[in-house]
């Protein structure tokens, strides 16, 4: 029914990930545990969704070290931001089409 919606984003869990990452200003990244807590997902579940988003080029995952502890940071790529904007626009388009009465429909 909704063929034009980006299938990578159009899954509830991944949409929530993308929305959350999109609130960060460009140039900011969030630590994996912080993102996990914010979304209330399990680490395994979040990892699976993140790798799907990474495959699509929508998120960037950087593994680094703070002292001796490894830390993983996640950020939305520019491509991911654009994809989310397009997705939101498409959703709004669907809503408008549903709300606007058809011509001659009065």
């Amino acid at each position: 029914m909704t063929p034009e919606l980006d299938p990578v984003i159009h899954a509830q869990a991944r949409l929530r990930v993308v929305v959350t990452l999109n609130t960060l200003p460009e140039g900011d990244r969030i630590a994996f545990p912080g993102l996990k807590d914010l979304l209330g997902m399990t680490a395994g579940n979040l990892s699976v969704h993140l790798s799907k988003l990474e495959e699509a080029g929508y998120v960037e995952i950087v593994k680094t070290h703070r002292g001796r502890t490894p830390v993983t940071y996640v950020a939305l790529t520019r491509r991911g931001r654009v994809a989310f904007e397009d997705y939101t626009a498409a959703i709004r388009g669907l809503l408008d089409a549903a709300v606007t009465p058809q011509p001659g429909d009065t």
Partner: peptide, 16 residues
């Protein structure tokens, strides 16, 4: 679409 839009708004507000 309504649910999706609501999800986007709620999740965005929660993250902020």
């Amino acid at each position: 679409p309504e649910e999706t839009l609501r999800l986007i708004e709620q999740q965005g507000a929660a993250a902020v």
